[in-house]
Design a protein around this nucleic acid. Structure first.
Length: 317
DNA sequence: GCCATTTGACCCTA
DNA sequence: TAGGGTCAAATGGC
């Protein structure tokens, strides 16, 4: 997809570039401050204040990214963002034939009525959800999944399997995942998680914060090794266009495409001040105690602060 | 009998 | 219209 910008768009992009970069850099700064804040050991009496400032920082981060993303999506060149940016789809974009298909959670209501038309395949596709990708040598992540489908994928050697949370019907958990063997390494599985577990006794999602000394991923099967050794998990958050029921602030989502664009913007900007930002972003694939994975940080972002309870937690280190 | 998996059908989106 | 995602009947294991 070659992007040919009209002179007008190009001008707009150039004039906006600085403010876009500023917005992104602010977000980055706030995130760094937040990180420092969580690293600090604070006396108990200060804990309340610390929480408050953490919340302020989170709000700043979100605001900064919101503004930047909305600025980007308003420009012609923002297609890369808009296609990933969370979109408010109202529940009425459900196709008429199956408008209540997804709302029913009881297995009773799923039973086919006598004489009713077979509605197989009549569903509302999740147009968007919080998604992230994990690469692991195992498909077992500690959650209880039920397989509901398998498909041969074009140009893929291996079929893709579809799983939903076993609590889908009793607790309405919307988490699903897709598992596919890696093309280049069939010993490994690429698992795409879609949506977070809302079921009560679900296992915690993989801890996305980790350090050299703290390989505290809670799932025993997520053996973290960041140097490309055999047991490795890489979590790459992505955000598909999302359904309205997701609780995240739509514009607060930042996608890998956005990250790529960010890199491009930074690279093109020629603003050396931001050089270290780029390097901190793109040199953090190796997770160390001092430099958490950039993807991880945006995993937090993709999930949204509101959704931390239960599934994701900040841990004091 | 209950539950999970398999598999073909069907619908949605790009 | 092709490819992908989901449904649900059929089947098998416990």
């Amino acid at each position: 997809m070659g992007t040919t910008l009209s002179p007008c768009s190009e001008k707009l992009l150039t004039s906006n570039k600085k403010s876009l970069i500023e917005g992104l850099v602010h977000g980055q700064e706030y995130a760094t401050q937040l990180q420092i804040l969580f690293h600090k050991s604070v006396p108990k009496e200060e804990d309340g204040r610390r929480r408050l400032s953490a919340e302020e920082l989170v709000q700043k981060i979100l605001r900064s990214f919101n503004e930047t993303i909305s600025a980007l999506s308003s420009s012609d060149s923002a297609d890369v963002v808009s296609q990933n940016q969370a979109t408010n789809y109202s529940t009425d974009d459900i196709s008429p034939c199956c408008d209540d298909r997804r709302s029913e959670d009881s297995s009773e209501s799923r039973k086919k009525l006598p004489g009713s038309k077979d509605k197989r395949g009549c569903y509302k596709r999740k147009r968007s959800a919080q998604t992230w990708v994990a690469v692991s040598s195992t498909t077992d992540d500690g959650h209880a999944w039920r397989k509901y489908g398998q498909k041969e994928i074009l140009n893929s050697k291996h079929p893709r399997s579809y799983f939903r949370c076993t609590r889908k019907y009793d607790q309405g958990c919307k988490a699903t995942k897709q598992v596919q063997r890696m093309e280049d390494d069939s010993q490994k599985f690429q698992t795409t998680y879609i949506g977070t577990h809302t079921c009560k006794n679900s296992f915690k999602a993989p801890k996305i914060f980790t350090t050299d000394s703290d390989q505290s991923l809670e799932e025993p099967n997520y053996n973290v090794n960041h140097s490309g050794e055999s047991k490795n998990i890489v979590i790459i958050p992505t955000v598909k266009q999302e359904a309205k029921e997701e609780t995240t602030t739509p514009t607060s989502d930042l996608t890998d495409s956005t990250m790529i664009m960010w890199k491009d913007i930074m690279a093109e900007s020629g603003m050396s001040d931001y050089g270290d930002v780029v390097s901190s972003v793109y040199s953090c694939n190796e997770i160390t105690s001092g430099c958490r994975s950039f993807e991880m940080d945006f995993g937090i972002k993709a999930v949204g602060v509101d959704q931390f309870d239960g599934d994701f937690q900040f841990d004091d280190i």
